[in-house]
């Protein structure tokens, strides 16, 4: 089939309700929707503070059709560990327990708890939906914010000048059984990875790039297209790492130039050709390093 037909690979079950409070075009609900489709109704969600704290709906609402616990910012992995332990103690070995955190709750404030859970190999799946800044609080930089990006705390005159933290490598370094990066623009790949993760015991980490139209300063309808570009141009490669050692690419990354991706986003508007060339250079370099990992292991 010339069209990449994915409908038969996306489970039909819906465990996310309409009426949630995500901004139009937000990638985060698509990510949750797909993940829950892959996991099914026997799933419990530990949700530290993030955009999803809002998306899930204010009390007395819930947009999820699975149990959900709203928790403190830095506790996703720890709360999920506790839930899982409780289920085990009561003989429920079937329900999947996940933590669902943003990039702030994962890369920054929640990293300690995540590292702890990963090191203990807690039997949870940790999802980070990454919109590359503190979007819920109004676009402040996080350690997931890419080099060169504007945020309200990295104004255009002094944009973010550190590269995005390599979260997948950090998690791989914990030698957890499964770590992967995924994208809302590749639903079939995402679903496949979640299903695979579900079948593995131990800590599993899935990092999902999820564009934020207001934070990236893009049009609502562009979010999926940009997420896709980020994969095609190798800014956000889609990978799997097993036991911290076996790295592989899960989709094609044609290696298109980064420029259209950068130019289409208002958060990079202040960048000139030289800066974009620098981003390209960094992406190329990292790609080479990833290729080495794929070829030779870590």
């Amino acid at each position: 089939m010339s069209q990449i037909l994915i409908k038969d690979r996306i489970p039909r079950e819906e465990l996310l309700d309409s009426g949630h409070l995500a901004c139009p075009g937000c990638g985060a609900p698509i990510a949750m929707r797909l993940v829950l489709k892959a996991l099914g109704e026997k799933t419990m969600v530990a949700l530290p503070a993030c955009c999803w704290s809002i998306i899930a709906g204010p009390w007395p609402q819930s947009s999820l059709r699975v149990p959900l616990f709203h928790s403190a910012f830095e506790t996703g992995a720890a709360v999920a560990s506790g839930i899982k332990a409780a289920l085990e103690m009561r003989g429920d070995l079937e329900t999947t327990v996940i933590a669902w955190a943003g990039d702030g709750g994962t890369f920054d404030i929640g990293l300690q708890a995540l590292s702890g859970a990963a090191e203990r190999n807690e039997d949870i799946i940790y999802f980070c939906y990454d919109n590359e800044a503190y979007m819920n609080t109004g676009v402040q930089r996080s350690s997931a914010t890419p080099w060169g990006a504007w945020t309200t705390t990295t104004p255009a005159e002094h944009p973010e000048m550190r590269p995005k933290k390599d979260m997948l490598a950090i998690m791989a370094a914990h030698r957890i059984p499964y770590a992967a990066s995924a994208s809302v623009a590749y639903p079939d790949d995402l679903v496949e990875k979640v299903k695979k993760a579900k079948g593995i015991k131990g800590t599993r980490f899935i990092h999902i790039l999820s564009p934020c139209p207001p934070g990236w300063k893009i049009a609502d309808e562009e979010s999926i297209a940009l997420a896709r570009l980020a994969v095609r141009n190798r800014v956000f490669p889609l990978m799997e790492v097993e036991n911290g050692e076996r790295w592989r690419f899960s989709v094609d990354h044609p290696g298109e130039p980064v420029e259209p991706y950068i130019r289409r986003q208002g958060r990079f508007r202040h960048l000139g050709d030289a800066e974009i060339a620098e981003i390209q250079r960094a992406v190329d370099e990292r790609w080479k390093s990833l290729e080495r990992r794929v070829q030779h292991g870590t």
């Binding site: 309700d17 309409s18 009426g19 949630h20 409070l21 139009p24 899930a56 709906g57 009390w59 007395p60 609402q61 819930s62 947009s63 059709r65 959900l68």
Partner: peptide
């Protein structure tokens, strides 16, 4: 406790568009 008793379907978010 703040426990949900309904779904977000009560929000007619279509009015945003």
């Amino acid at each position: 406790v703040a426990v949900s008793t309904t779904t977000t379907l009560v929000n007619r978010t279509g009015s945003w568009k």
